[in-house]
Amino acid sequence: MISSQRQHLILSRLRTRGAVRITSLSQELGVSAMTIRRDISELSDKGLLTRVHGGAITANSLLSEPLFSVKSQMDVDLKDAIARKAVSYVAPGDVIAIGGGTTAYIFAQHLIESQRSNGVTILTNSIPVAELVQSLESKDVDVIVTGGVITRSNSLVGPIADKVVGSLRVNTVFLGTHSVSIPRGFLMPNSLEAATDMAMMGIADRTVILTDHTKWRCTSLSLFARFDQVDTVISDDGLDSKSAAKTRNLVKELVLAHQDEQTEERE
């Protein structure tokens, strides 16, 4: 087991238990106590946990991955504004990919309600997005589901998902993110989900990240995209000016949606 996998498991145990002991992790993972101490030290340096004598405790509740049902009730107005803005990045007949998460789901809702969805094919690893499209049988929208292992956010990830994704090609991929780290990029708490997001980016002509301004205050484990790998970041006007300026210097396009703004059509 490589270090990133061990560290993901350590954070996973922290999310469920609130604290972990070096001796228990050493026995569970079959590695030396020194190796666990080194992993905990690296995670502590990243701000992902707090070291204590004999183990570690959770540093920040935002490190955990809430259930989809929980996230769907958070920052709804911000996500809605971002989703409406993102619809203008789709043209009728496009083949697009939509990742997991609640902002991506709201984007799918708005897209299907618009004329831009005519003839669109959607590749997704999101169970809620797939169910949404499938429930609207009269719409001229096709959906391809990746398959894979289900995460807490109702996303399908892992080798099966990555293999399906790798066999296809799309015009644009729309992805959410758990956190935005300057100057690193975009991160997820689940390393398998990060890998599947990377696979989706690899088959897309254009990558669009959908994320509200609160994600600039979060931290997470697995990097899935650098700023220079992303074409457009769509956020909301709650993003502070300092973070916005730094992000604009790193990414090709930063778009800030206004909650009371009617989305304009793009050419």
Rank of each mutant, 00 (worst) to 15 (best):
V76C: 07
Q115T: 14
G30D: 11
N125T: 12
E65G: 00
D94L: 07
T219C: 12
G238M: 09
M200D: 02
R38D: 04
R169T: 14
E264L: 15
V157R: 03
E131I: 11
N118S: 13
T232A: 12
A97D: 08
G93K: 08
L49S: 04
D140H: 11
S126V: 03
T247M: 11
S69H: 13
L132H: 04
V255S: 11
V87N: 06
L14W: 00
L62A: 13
S26Q: 01
S44N: 12
V180C: 09
L63D: 03
Q115K: 13
D240C: 13
I160R: 09
L168N: 12
A59R: 03
L221S: 01
G176S: 07
V208W: 06
V255G: 09
G93D: 08
F107N: 08
S135E: 06
K215R: 08
M200F: 11
W216Y: 15
L67K: 08
T124E: 01
Q115F: 10
R169M: 12
Q109S: 09
S69V: 10
P183H: 05
V164R: 09
E113D: 13
R184I: 14
L14E: 02
T102Q: 04
T124H: 08
S222W: 00
L239P: 07
T146V: 08
V157L: 07
S179W: 05
F107T: 03
L156Y: 02
V145K: 01
L67F: 12
V145H: 03
K85N: 12
G99Y: 02
E264T: 15
S72L: 11
V141P: 00
D236S: 11
M1T: 01
L156H: 06
T102L: 05
V233E: 09
L250Y: 07
I150E: 14
D140Y: 06
T103K: 07
D237K: 12
L62I: 07
T211D: 02
L136C: 12
I112W: 08
I36D: 00
K46F: 03
Q259F: 10
V255Q: 13
G148H: 06
L123G: 08
L67S: 15
T23P: 10
K252L: 12
S220F: 04
R13S: 14
E261I: 10
Y89I: 09
A195V: 03
